[in-house]
Design a protein around this nucleic acid. Structure first.
Lengths: 149, 149
DNA sequence: GTTCTTATTGAGATTGAATCTCAAATGAGA
DNA sequence: TCTCATTTGAGATTCAATCTCAATAAGAAC
């Protein structure tokens, strides 16, 4: 977690009349210090492992705040769980997801972004956000034979 | 439900050693005869309203079969519920979703499809499927003032 | 530093979509 | 018609996420 990140978090809490608690800081630190796309439960367990016992409720509540005030990005790959990634200083991107091993890689494509705008305009929709996920087999998984189990 | 649709459904059941039951036929008919993107629960309630009392379990189980054997398409807009749409004789399409009223319209764009293939290739992913959803305000909802409730 | 008010925390209960269990019912091949 | 594996229905269960509420603690005012 950089000083800038902590500063931004503190600013959000202040601006929104939310209190700066050690639990909130630990959750935010945990998110900032990982490049993965993790579920709330994983963040909760990671904190426990470090003997930072923040309750499950508080982790969920803090993730809600971080998402609401745009300090993290979140994605849903269709398994009923939100996955979070730290977002500050990053740019918008979409995802390639391996359906076998779960590896998630990020991509950006300005051409697609442009066409999306055209499509929304054509249908008279005011575009707010989008979800674009490519599911497939990653380089490693393509090579492996299909398991019968 | 067209004869062709019923025939295809019967073929799938036969091929997969699944039995042709009145409940399964009613669920499939209900899905075929609607152009909406509906949840399992909505399909269940629609059947009840018509005094076709198929249990909730059977509706869920039948939707699983229809999806597995490609007789329906399903989508997840991030609210934890699968939405189904009848699929036979339709082509692949993506969705524009109004974040206020929930209206879903379909779009296709061959250019985006092409770029997707390039992106997957660039990352050495074997593309299997994709999710592309544009969220925004539809023509009607753009005009309405934001409610404070 | 002390006091006071109000937000926050944690533990466990609750929700809701989806899945599972198992006894009773029923397709469909012989 | 008989037989038997499959399917159904009702209710229990799962799991992520949210809610409840008493105890705790942040932080503004002094």
């Amino acid at each position: 977690m950089t000083d800038l990140e902590l500063k931004k978090f503190k600013k959000v809490l202040k601006d929104e009349n939310l209190r700066l608690t050690p639990q909130r800081v630990e959750v935010f630190r945990e998110v900032c210090n990982s490049e993965e796309h993790r579920e709330a439960e994983e963040i909760y367990l990671a904190l426990r492992k470090k003997d930072l016992n923040v309750s499950r409720s508080t982790v969920y509540r803090t993730m809600d705040i971080l998402y609401k005030y745009d300090l993290v990005e979140r994605m849903d790959i269709g398994d009923g769980k939100w996955r979070y990634e730290h977002w500050l200083n990053c740019h918008h991107h979409d995802h390639l997801i391996c359906i076998r091993c779960g590896t998630i890689v990020e991509f950006t494509n300005t051409q697609i972004e442009e066409i999306q705008k055209d499509v929304a305009e054509k249908f008279n929709y005011q575009l707010v956000r989008h979800v674009h996920q490519l599911f497939g087999l990653c380089k490693q998984c393509r090579k492996m034979p299909i398991s019968v189990n």
